[in-house]
């Protein structure tokens, strides 16, 4: 069975490009432009990995992380941000984020992080 990956970023290109690259790796990918619609989708479908942007209008990345960890503790969360701020990174770590990537994101590193997380999850 294919692993499900969700990408949340208000920059449409991030979702589009990551989707193309990750689908090539054999993942099933869905993209969202805001936290709210993403969380709504999670109620209907479970995802193995959620990749979310930090700074978004409305529900931001940290809130997505907290919600996911609270409701779906098995789901892995990876965070990306355009403006890396140490305080936010520390807060995210505390909430059990898998990885924290500053923009510009290296897709190879992202792929490696996803792979590692899934292997760990599979045990």
């Amino acid at each position: 069975m294919k692993n499900n990956i969700m990408i949340i970023d208000d920059e449409k290109i991030v979702g589009d490009m990551a989707k193309l690259s990750l689908e090539q790796e054999g993942y099933e990918v869905e993209t969202f432009l805001d936290g709210e619609s993403a969380l709504n989708r999670m109620e209907k479908k479970s995802f193995d990995v959620v990749i979310t942007d930090l700074k978004m209008k409305g529900i931001d990345g940290l809130e997505v992380l907290r919600n996911v960890k609270h409701l779906y503790p098995d789901t892995v969360v990876i965070m990306i941000t355009a403006f890396a701020n140490l305080d936010v990174a520390i807060e995210a770590m505390r909430d059990d984020v898998q990885d924290f990537f500053p923009k510009p994101v290296k897709i190879k590193e992202l792929k490696a992080s996803i792979k590692k997380a899934l292997e760990k999850k599979a045990g």
């Binding site: 920059e11 490009m17 193309l20 690259s21 090539q24 923009k103 994101v105 290296k106 897709i107």
Partner: peptide
């Protein structure tokens, strides 16, 4: 950073 990241991701995906 946002448009730079977009360009970078387009380039990486393009290659991929």
């Amino acid at each position: 950073n946002n448009p730079l990241n977009n360009i970078s991701m387009i380039a990486q995906t393009y290659e991929d």
